[in-house]
């Protein structure tokens, strides 16, 4: 065996990736051959200079940039999240009169609803009154401090609502800034038509979510709720039977600035299919810090 054969083995010998008998032969050769012994020493020295290269630090802003790019990538892959957008509104869906009528109707309906349920458990708001049928089986896991409807009514009264429930949603529509699938809440009074900019403040939001298993979905939601440290949270489960529940409604109140994040988190698990909202025109930016009431309606997709 010549030196070339042994020298090829030096690299594996350094790493210990060599069979025992080959190792013995090599070591024997190294004792006799100064050239190969020198080759080994030089190799070790050279590799030392390589291994001593320091780890370089990340450049400033690297993390922020990658986070931003990943978010954009996420949107490209999964589409943007259906959530209210404060935007410049150039079109209208409901006239001011119709909007006002809906608000009045809601206030009346809310009061009637409360009268009928006086003394019963705390009831929660529903834009879809069918859900508030008295014959529904209600399992209230946790009671909200403030019934959503009360809060809704008070906001309605105080803030002189300019738009209301059942506002149109425009899913999958490409918006001016290029985001796709954003739900836009459009309700502009006559005197606001063609106005340059209206800031929408979301007070109540109702979202339908398609899930495969209600119980599993509730667990997922509970995890997310826990993550965002949301205290005001309760669940109603409808139609529970031996084969499991078919529907559930989750009510929660959370700071408005985390609503988007919260919905993003849910949308990584489930499809958000429908969205309705109460929103009002903000005269005062401080109103944006109001808590938002969310109603999540879980529906079995099968």
């Amino acid at each position: 065996m010549d030196c070339k054969y042994f020298q090829e083995q030096l690299s594996w010998y350094i790493d210990g990736y060599i069979e025992e008998d080959e190792k013995q032969k090599l070591e024997q050769h190294l004792q006799q051959c100064a050239l190969c012994a020198q080759e080994l020493e030089e190799m070790k020295l050279a590799l030392k200079s390589l291994r001593e290269l320091p780890e370089v630090e990340l450049p400033p802003g690297f993390r922020q940039e990658i986070t931003k790019k990943l978010k954009e990538e996420h949107k490209k892959i999964y589409g943007s999240k259906p959530f209210i957008k404060r935007k410049i509104m150039k079109r209208h869906w409901l006239s001011w009169g119709a909007t006002a009528a809906v608000v009045v109707f809601m206030l009346i309906a809310a009061n009637i609803f409360r009268m009928f349920n006086m003394g019963s458990q705390s009831q929660t708001a529903s834009n879809d009154l069918a859900e508030a049928q008295p014959n529904q089986e209600v399992m209230q896991l946790e009671k909200a401090d403030t019934p959503v409807l009360d809060q809704e009514a008070s906001i309605t009264a105080q803030e002189e609502i300019k738009s209301s429930t059942d506002l149109a949603e425009v899913p999958e529509e490409k918006t001016s800034d290029g985001e796709q699938g954003t739900f836009q809440i459009m309700a502009v009074p006559d005197n606001m038509r063609e106005s340059e900019a209206v800031v929408e403040v979301v007070s109540d939001l109702s979202v339908d979510i398609e899930v495969d298993q209600i119980q599993k979905a509730i667990q997922v939601l509970e995890e997310i709720v826990e993550k965002y440290n949301i205290q005001d949270f309760h669940i109603q489960i409808k139609g529970e039977n031996s084969s499991g529940s078919s529907e559930a409604t989750v009510y929660l109140t959370l700071p408005e600035d985390i609503v988007q994040k919260f919905l993003d988190a849910i949308s990584t698990h489930y499809k958000l299919v429908n969205m309705r909202t109460n929103s009002f025109r903000a005269e005062d930016e401080k109103q944006e810090k109001n808590p938002s009431n969310l109603k999540l309606h879980l529906k079995n997709s099968t």
């Binding site: 780890e55 370089v56 630090e57 990340l58 690297f62 993390r63 990658i66 986070t67 990943l70 978010k71 996420h74 892959i77 999964y78 988190a265 949308s267 990584t268 698990h269």
Partner: peptide
């Protein structure tokens, strides 16, 4: 794999320096 970006961000945090190096 289900589309959770936050979980991926945890992996980015863990490997970013190695990948950069």
């Amino acid at each position: 794999k289900k589309g959770d970006l936050e979980s991926f961000n945890i992996l980015v945090e863990k490997y970013q320096k190695h990948v950069y190096n």
